[in-house]
Amino acid sequence: MVRWFWQRDKAPKRTLALRSRGDLGDATRVDFAELAPELDTFLGQAAYLQLGYFETLTRLIRGTLELSEKEALSRAAGAALTKHREIVEIIRSRGDDPTQVMLPFREQLDAFRRKTIGVRPRETLLAVYITAGMLDDFYRAVASSYGDVGARVVEILSADDETHEIVEIIQATITSDEEWRSLLSMWARRLVGDTILVARAALRPGPLAIDDEKRVEPVFTELMGAHARRMDAMGLAA
């Protein structure tokens, strides 16, 4: 029987802190009882998400004709695979089987990834950049709940993801054709909704109580602020 984020025994109060790629200043800290999942759940999801980014990027590489773009995508894919492998090593160091730890979340996360694959390669490329950025931010925040192991995960997720060239590709695309700017802006807005649902599912199923919403609001405010800065850097409207 699969145990999802919220299906666990009552846990002590934990702390959620969000720090997005070093550009948010002091992290907002939110005390939220029973917020973070169990450690093996967190590690399994974090590892499988990175594997998913790698898979999507490698598919884009196969469909790309321009050699310079293939090289840019290969570097981003390599960075995602490195993160995956390093989280897998943490799982192994705890005496667990990485495949068994990741397997319960494969179906749910594959479904999310399918929803974020666009009709056109540029949409899919933007999807990887947007969803990986937002969820890396969120998982770094959740990682603050796990002491030294969490600190190591923060270090892994904060490493260079080699996506600056993806930004350049998107910028060149929207500069060449103004219709792309409108299309990708609308696509990004759809991506945000699906990605926030994944993050909120880590908190608890269903609507939060009013007091809980107030306590967790600063986290999502910072999450959206970091997203807006990424969009601005590409020349897209958030």
Rank of each mutant, 00 (worst) to 15 (best):
W4M: 11
F5L: 05
F5I: 05
R8H: 11
K10F: 08
A11H: 13
K13T: 15
L16A: 06
L18F: 14
R21C: 12
G25N: 03
A27T: 08
T28R: 13
T28V: 15
R29Y: 12
A33H: 14
L35R: 06
E38D: 14
L39W: 05
D40R: 12
T41F: 07
F42E: 03
Q45E: 12
Y48F: 15
L49M: 09
Q50Y: 00
Q50A: 13
F54C: 12
E55W: 08
T56A: 11
L57G: 05
L60W: 01
L67K: 06
L67T: 08
E69A: 09
K70C: 10
E71K: 11
L73V: 01
S74Q: 06
A76Y: 00
A79S: 11
A79I: 01
A80P: 01
L81P: 02
L81I: 01
H84R: 08
E86Y: 07
E86H: 11
V88M: 10
I91C: 05
I91R: 04
R92L: 11
R94W: 06
R94E: 09
D97W: 05
V101I: 11
L103T: 10
R106E: 09
R106T: 04
E107T: 12
L109P: 01
D110E: 15
A111S: 13
F112L: 10
I117F: 01
R122V: 15
L125A: 05
L126T: 03
L126E: 02
A127S: 15
V128M: 01
Y129D: 07
T131W: 00
A132D: 12
A132P: 00
G133E: 00
M134H: 01
D137V: 03
D137W: 05
V142M: 02
A143E: 01
A143M: 03
S144Y: 09
S145A: 15
G147H: 05
G147I: 07
D148E: 15
G150S: 04
V154Y: 06
L157W: 03
A159Y: 01
D160L: 05
D160P: 09
D160K: 06
T163E: 13
T163S: 12
E165D: 13
E168S: 13
E168R: 14
I170C: 04
I170N: 03
Q171D: 04
A172H: 02
A172K: 10
T175I: 12
W180D: 08
S185N: 02
T195G: 09
A201P: 06
A201Y: 10
A201K: 10
L203C: 09
R204S: 11
P207S: 08
I210V: 14
K214E: 14
R215W: 03
E217W: 13
T221R: 14
T221A: 14
T221C: 07
T221V: 11
L223I: 11
M224R: 15
A226M: 07
A228S: 14
M231A: 12
A237R: 13
A238N: 10
